[in-house]
């Protein structure tokens, strides 16, 4: 049989495939997060400037990474859904949105809890925080659109257009927010993250981020399975109502 993109894109095949793979994904997620937590509390040294508060980075940075990763998955799936009319792509896009939104929220919360001891306030309107907030709004709008259109096929294509329009606009929004920020705050703000992270902190961070990513993939698979079944329930109900 020819091995094409459709091999795993068939919903039934995906159900079988994900059932086999899921335990390994969860194991990798658990191992990554578990080892990462150990490393971040017992191995990683306190930062010479920020002391122990730097450990919040191990929540903040992976969450921020997944907030971008989730949108990336949404956009790629949306493009595939629109162009190839793939039965699985819009399921993936819909399932990725709430997970991405949750990690965007976590990035904001952890950032606030990091900001309080560092900046003296939970919330600052700095460029990164503000564009993360706008990203959260776009996630929520996308989810609202899905929730408000009943027919899943129509909702899928409309939501795909929104995700792609959002992807086109996000760089513009990010640029404008950066620009706005330098306008109102001369560049004296203490940078939380950035290239100055010491290497002894970097590799524990990498382990946690990897664990978080596998967690994301695990939840994504579970949600996709549930979504495929939800559509099956919908067709079964409609068949029985018609009969």
């Amino acid at each position: 049989m020819a091995w094409s993109i459709h091999t795993y894109a068939n919903p039934t095949r995906f159900m079988n495939f994900s059932a086999i793979v899921l335990p390994y994904v969860w194991a990798l997620a658990g191992a990554g997060i578990g080892i990462g937590l150990y490393l971040s509390f017992f191995v990683a040294p306190p930062d010479y400037q920020q002391g122990d508060s730097v450990r919040i980075m191990f929540v903040h940075v992976p969450s921020a990474w997944l907030s971008q990763f989730g949108y990336g998955i949404m956009v790629v799936s949306s493009i595939v859904a629109l162009i190839f009319r793939h039965p699985l792509a819009d399921v993936a896009a819909k399932s990725a949105a709430p997970i991405g939104a949750v990690f965007t929220f976590l990035a904001l919360v952890a950032g606030g809890l990091w900001g309080k001891p560092m900046w003296g306030t939970y919330w600052v309107w700095d460029a990164r925080t503000t564009s993360t907030l706008v990203l959260l709004f776009i996630y929520l709008g996308y989810m609202a659109l899905w929730a408000m259109i009943e027919d899943p096929n129509r909702a899928a294509r409309v939501a795909a257009v929104l995700a792609i329009v959002g992807a086109v606009n996000l760089p513009i929004i990010r640029f404008s927010v950066d620009w706005w920020n330098t306008l109102h705050q001369p560049a004296s703000v203490f940078r939380l993250d950035g290239p100055t992270i010491h290497s002894s902190l970097l590799w524990p961070l990498f382990v946690v981020a990897l664990g978080f990513t596998f967690f994301f993939i695990g939840v994504l698979m579970v949600r996709m399975r549930a979504e495929i079944l939800r559509r099956k329930v919908r067709t079964l109900q409609m068949q029985q109502a018609a009969a």
Binding site: L37, R55, V59, A110
Partner: peptide
């Protein structure tokens, strides 16, 4: 205590 940062660190990890 985490060098005085305990509440912030633990709450961020627990919330996550």
């Amino acid at each position: 205590n985490m060098g005085g940062y305990g509440p912030y660190i633990w709450s961020s990890f627990l919330i996550a």
